[in-house]
Structure formats: C-alpha cells, structure tokens
Simulated assay, not measured.
Amino acid sequence: MKDMLVFGQTGQVARELAHHAGMRCLSRTEADLAEPAACAAAIRAHAPRAVINAAAYTAVDKAESEEALAHRINAEAPGAMARACADLDIPFIQLSTDYVFDGAGTAPRAPAEPTGPLNAYGRTKLAGERAVLAAGGPHAVLRTSWVVSAYGSNFVKTMLRLGKSRDRITVVADQIGGPTPARDIAAACIKIAETLIAEPANSGIYHFAGSPDTSWAGFARETFAQAGIACEVVDIPTSDYPTPAARPLNSRLDCSLLEPVFGLSRPDWRQGLRDILHDLGEI
C-alpha cells in the first residue's frame, strides 16, 4: 500500500488513507491541482504502482461562481494525472460523485445510466470522469455520496454542533441517498487499486455508497440517537432550504457491480457513524 501515491492530504478520504493505511499523501504545496502539469510531473517523479486522487474542489455552492477554477481542479488535473498514469501503465483511481446525475426518479442510478448534473460542481466532476476515461490507461472512477468522517467539515459534525445548542432543528427530508464513511471509501480505493494492478481489464466506472438509503433528516435523527442528543428533527422540503447550487433529490446509487469485480459490498453507514462518534469522543 505504501507504494501507492495519493493526491490530497487534508480531505476526509485522504486523511483516512494516511491515518489507517500509512499511504503517501501529497499536500497542495507538493502538487497543486490548480496546476495540472505539476500533478502529472509528481506522478512521474514518484513512479508509484498506483495513484488515488482524493483531492478535489468540493465547495458546491462556491463553484457556481468559480466554475473555471473548479474545472481546472476537478477535470483538467485528473485528466493530466490519468494520462501520466497511462504512460506508466499504472492504475488511476478517481473519486467522483452522485452529483453527476440529475436526481430524477426514485430508483438507484447504475454507472452506465445517462448523466445530467444540476450544478457547476457536478459538471466539473463529470468532465473529470470523461478525461480519465479518455486517457486510456487502467482506471476506476468511483462515484460516491454524502461523505462523512471524524475529519474536516461534514454533516455529522454540523449536526452534533447544532443538536447540542438547540432543542429543535429543521432538516431536508426529500433528498435521499447513502451516507458513506470516508474510512470505507479509503479501504475500497485500496482494494480497487490492488485489483487493477493485477487485472487492468476491470477498469471502468463504479458506484460505492453506504446502506441503507436515507434522507438528510433520517441521517440527523440517527446521529442524535447514537450520540444521546435530545434534539427534535423537523422534516422540510428542499424548497424550504434554498442554496446557490441545486441539489439532486435522488442520490441513490446502484453499487451492485462492485461485489463481483472487487468483492466489495455497501457498508452499513450506521456502524460507520458509531465509529465516527467514538473517534470524536461522543460515545
């Protein structure tokens, strides 16, 4: 595992890769994704057995006014990385998102289904996927959703802060998806990379999200229940919580391809949540 190279150092998945797998994670000063050529040069300099890109422009609302920067980081940089990996004939793992879909319907989306992002972030991530596929080397685009961990800013930590200071909060209940612990994503990335080193023909787009699917409101209730916080969660529709970037209502992902190819099943996010709360000293 230590002969794999990770882009990103402060993000949730990168921190799990560094902390639990001891992987080499490049900081922004070592490889700035706003400089795609520098990222490709870093890969050639390190000559790893595989590369995992766990870095991205993830400020969804801010991307509406910074789409050019988001595109450079989320599309141009992964494309440059993937081409460098293709030249070296090593696997490249690109993390992507459910936001490449339009959120219509209620059925889980399979990897091959048509995309249709609703916002700038989703458009730039989709462009990154296409750049990785176009590079032609061994690769996996791993779409995931609702990432949480004990690190950084995320939904669980926001709910803990609000739940401790209020008796009642309103939370969106008509967006449905699978919360996904970053620790499980990190482990999946390693397994996928190891498999592709031996079997590059398994390259492609895959989905990986926690189970069971729930709403943000349901996620909040489970967080409070496990942490022993007495805060009422009141369901509201997305229309009552407007944001600069539109969010998909249906973030369900069909993850069935992972089992036969990589031996990976959907993680139970409720167990992952317990681990996160334990790490945070909440339980």
Rank of each mutant, 00 (worst) to 15 (best):
G136D: 09
G137Y: 06
P138D: 04
P138H: 03
V141R: 08
V141D: 08
R143I: 06
R143W: 01
T144K: 04
T144V: 03
T144F: 02
S145K: 04
W146I: 00
V147A: 02
V148F: 15
S149N: 04
Y151K: 03
Y151E: 02
G152C: 00
G152T: 00
G152R: 00
G152P: 00
S153V: 12
N154E: 02
N154A: 04
F155V: 05
V156H: 03
K157Y: 02
K157F: 00
K157S: 03
T158I: 08
T158D: 15
R161Y: 12
R161F: 14
R161V: 12
L162H: 12
L162Q: 13
G163K: 13
K164F: 11
S165G: 10
S165K: 15
R166F: 13
D167I: 08
R168H: 13
I169H: 07
T170M: 12
A173R: 09
D174N: 15
D174K: 10
D174H: 07
Q175P: 04
I176E: 01
I176W: 06
G177V: 00
G177S: 00
G177R: 02
G178D: 06
P179E: 08
T180Q: 05
P181W: 14
P181Y: 14
A182I: 04
A182R: 07
D184W: 05
I185Y: 05
A186F: 03
A186T: 02
A187T: 10
A187C: 09
A187P: 05
A187H: 07
A187W: 05
A188R: 02
A188G: 06
A188T: 01
C189F: 05
C189M: 05
C189S: 09
I190N: 01
I192K: 07
A193F: 10
A193E: 06
E194H: 01
E194F: 01
T195V: 09
T195A: 11
T195F: 06
L196M: 11
I197E: 15
A198L: 11
A198Q: 09
E199I: 09
P200I: 01
A201N: 12
A201Q: 14
N202W: 09
S203G: 14
S203R: 13
G204W: 02
I205Q: 11
I205P: 06
